[in-house]
Design a protein around this nucleic acid. Structure first.
Length: 273
DNA sequence: GGGCTTACATGATTTACTTCA
DNA sequence: CGTGAAGTAAATCATGTAAGC
């Protein structure tokens, strides 16, 4: 869904703008407005509305690890949880309680099958904002957010897990693109330098080479950057071999010049809490 | 216009691992 | 040091939606 890509700023396609701004991929603004179509489909109704009592009880420990399955939605079969409220089923608004279970389970096909929960625009926006502030949640924050959004803490937790995973995936693609471009530029640079070496060798074999060569004393090298400062401008008509900074010839930019800002792999690894 | 297929987005689950008390 | 709980990443599944035919 194209529009929802924008919602999360998580388009996995590597558009040129993505490649140019890799470090901002995590900071994409949340979508201000999802499509009207979606709004119509959702009917402006929060399909995930769940009674507060459910999660307030089930998340008593403040944590809901996927492995502590007794406390989460996977209890009782592969997945199953009741959601009371208003639902959109087959395009119709249905009111009441919906038994939510894995669609693939044997006993749940047909009308009783769980509709996939979709977070509302507002819920997604709040989660996005929260994710921008901190991409992990402590139990307190999780509970507060769940309460604010009328979701179960487990849903908030899952949302953050998925968001982290997909952000990382996106960043990995950006990093990959960065390295690819780096490789391409270095290959090009290598090709250019080899050509230059060939030309110099050809010149060296030429009998006039030393006559046209600038005395080495006119070249000064910066000790820090190891670049050679060119001598004063040549007299008009005079041809000289001039040492110059790499890539200064032919207006060739250095390999890194056209690359985006620091990719994520140059940053320090994230600290675990 | 409706049905079918396909691709994609995304919520949810499972498993393995790490950290910490 | 061994153990269990908690948290997370990674892989994967399942479902809803849009687009193309």
């Amino acid at each position: 869904m194209l529009v929802e890509k924008e919602d999360l700023g998580l388009s996995l396609s590597l558009s040129s703008s993505d490649a140019l701004c890799p470090l901002q991929s995590n900071l994409m603004p949340p979508a201000t407005l999802p499509p009207e179509q979606r709004l119509m489909l959702m009917g402006g109704i929060d399909v995930n509305r769940a009674p507060m009592e459910e999660w307030e009880v089930e998340d008593d420990a403040g944590g809901s690890s996927p492995n502590s399955s007794v406390s989460n939605a996977s209890a009782g079969g592969k997945r199953g949880f009741g959601v009371a409220g208003v639902f959109v089923v087959g395009g119709e608004v249905v009111e009441g309680e919906q038994e939510c279970s894995r669609g693939g389970s044997d006993e749940e096909d047909g009308e009783g099958a769980r509709k996939k929960l979709r977070l509302s625009k507002e819920q997604s926006a709040v989660l996005e904002e929260s994710f921008k502030e901190h991409n992990t949640l402590n139990p307190k924050q999780k509970l507060a957010l769940a309460k604010q959004l009328n979701l179960r803490p487990r849903q908030v937790e899952v949302w953050f897990q998925n968001r982290r995973a997909r952000t990382k995936l996106k960043q990995t693609e950006v990093d990959c693109e960065f390295l690819k471009r780096c490789c391409e530029n270095l290959t090009e640079e290598n090709r250019r330098l080899q050509k230059e070496v060939q030309e110099l060798r050809a010149l060296k074999l030429s009998p006039h080479f030393y006559m046209h060569m600038t005395p080495p004393t006119t070249l000064t090298m910066c000790p820090s950057c190891e670049r050679v400062t060119p001598p004063p401008p040549a007299v008009a008509g005079e041809k000289r071999l001039i040492a110059r900074p790499i890539n200064a010839a032919a207006g060739v930019a250095p390999p890194w010049a056209s690359l985006p800002l620091r990719p994520s792999f140059l940053d320090a690894p994230p600290q675990r809490h």
